[in-house]
Write a protein that binds this DNA or RNA. Structure first.
Lengths: 219, 219
DNA sequence: AACGATATGGCACACAGTGCCATATAGCCA
DNA sequence: TGGCTATATGGCACTGTGTGCCATATCGTT
């Protein structure tokens, strides 16, 4: 069991946590160096010196260890959303929670955190099975976020489809922006924030019905 | 090789087409009866009397045979979009292409086609690996549809992010509507069409900035 | 009828994932 | 401290997916 801050209580718990982290780190390193498919679980467990059987007690499969960091990111996002002030409009709460988490993960910490984040995203995007699994995780995250929005707004769960629509709209814009940022060469965090803003502007143009006014170039 | 109408030219081609269809049918039947995970490839090939090795020459894996029909549906959709009149606004073209294909697949043909469609969707939704793969296919379809929209509007490919945003918005609404339809008990095609309309209405409410006016119930 | 192209079948193999049981280690209590 | 219990780990053995390789069968053509 872990308390809310993530601090392990007993010695056993701490050791398990260390083993888990070691497995994620070793896997991450191997995946980024050799590629996901070319890396076997045997290589991962060899690097951490645990048995193959133990690996499967920590993770349901190879995908899970590969997406471990991404899922931590999602958890942060959901946390940030739940702690947003209750008087914010739903979309505002979503966007500010996002900005908050990106600032924490991509900007701060080490300078290399942004690089790591980008490399991981590219690996996921280039590995069909990982892309598929991460999209499934996104759908699951959307459900939880929609439930949270419904709670904030005091709606009966599942009775109003606006939370689901809003959350999916949010993720749509984010996905387009992230794709653009990922495929580009500029990997600065400020660039990501600006791309997101631009994407929202373009979406705003679509939503107000203004389309047929010629090309709207990027940047 | 197949010509545009799908008619096989040689005898060899026709035989291959028949084998492929037999594999898809047998797989579909087994998946729906026993579940995807509980069905082995050995059982599928036994039902069609081909070797396991041959199966993998027709399909890249178990997922592919399970999603074969869904991918045909996607191809129909893309076809319908490309043949829409050029003077239709992008979103109009998308929505009419969708209605067109749904009418063809769910309404007409046999009466059981709608049932089949719904059962398949539920199986995909309930099988994590299939859900993941189908979401990945959706993303790929979105890319192609965005390219088609860009072409229709005479935009430089990749220079304007509005096609991507519009297509992803379209799929977002469709996904929310389809989810609602799938989990419900009413499986009539008219119900699906109405759910889609309602979802668009709700999205319209979101887009015009009107949110905080209390609960908007479904139906 | 014979030839070349291609589709199929039959291995052998690597890897992912699981069930089962033996063993080792942490936590706890006398 | 010594021993008991719970739990974490390791070591098989096994199923199933997916692939490379080569022999064989079948189609299409001259």
């Amino acid at each position: 069991m872990r308390d809310t801050a993530g601090t392990a209580t007993g010695l056993r718990e701490r050791k398990k946590e260390r083993t888990r982290e070691a497995l994620v780190d070793a896997a991450q390193e191997l995946f980024l160096r050799k590629g996901y498919d070319a890396t076997t679980i045997d290589e991962i467990v060899a690097a951490v010196e645990v048995s193959r059987r133990t690996f499967f007690r920590y993770f349901a499969g190879k995908e899970e260890v590969a997406l471990a960091r991404a899922m931590e990111f999602e958890a942060l996002f959901l946390d940030a959303l739940t702690t947003r002030p209750a008087d914010e409009a739903p979309l505002t709460a979503l966007r500010r929670a996002g900005t908050e988490v990106f600032a924490r993960v991509v900007d701060e910490e080490h300078d290399g955190a942004g690089q790591e984040f980008l490399r991981m995203r590219r690996m996921i995007e280039d590995t069909p099975v990982l892309l598929a699994a991460s999209l499934r995780n996104m759908i699951e995250l959307e459900r939880r976020m929609a439930a949270e929005i419904a709670r904030r707004e005091g709606l009966t769960p599942g009775a109003d489809r606006r939370p689901a629509l809003l959350v999916t709209l949010y993720h749509s814009v984010m996905r387009v922006a992230m794709d653009e940022w990922t495929e580009g060469e500029v990997l600065e965090a400020a660039g990501l924030a600006r791309t997101i803003e631009d994407a929202w502007d373009d979406m705003g143009i679509l939503l107000t019905g203004r389309w047929t006014e010629g090309e709207i170039p990027r940047t």
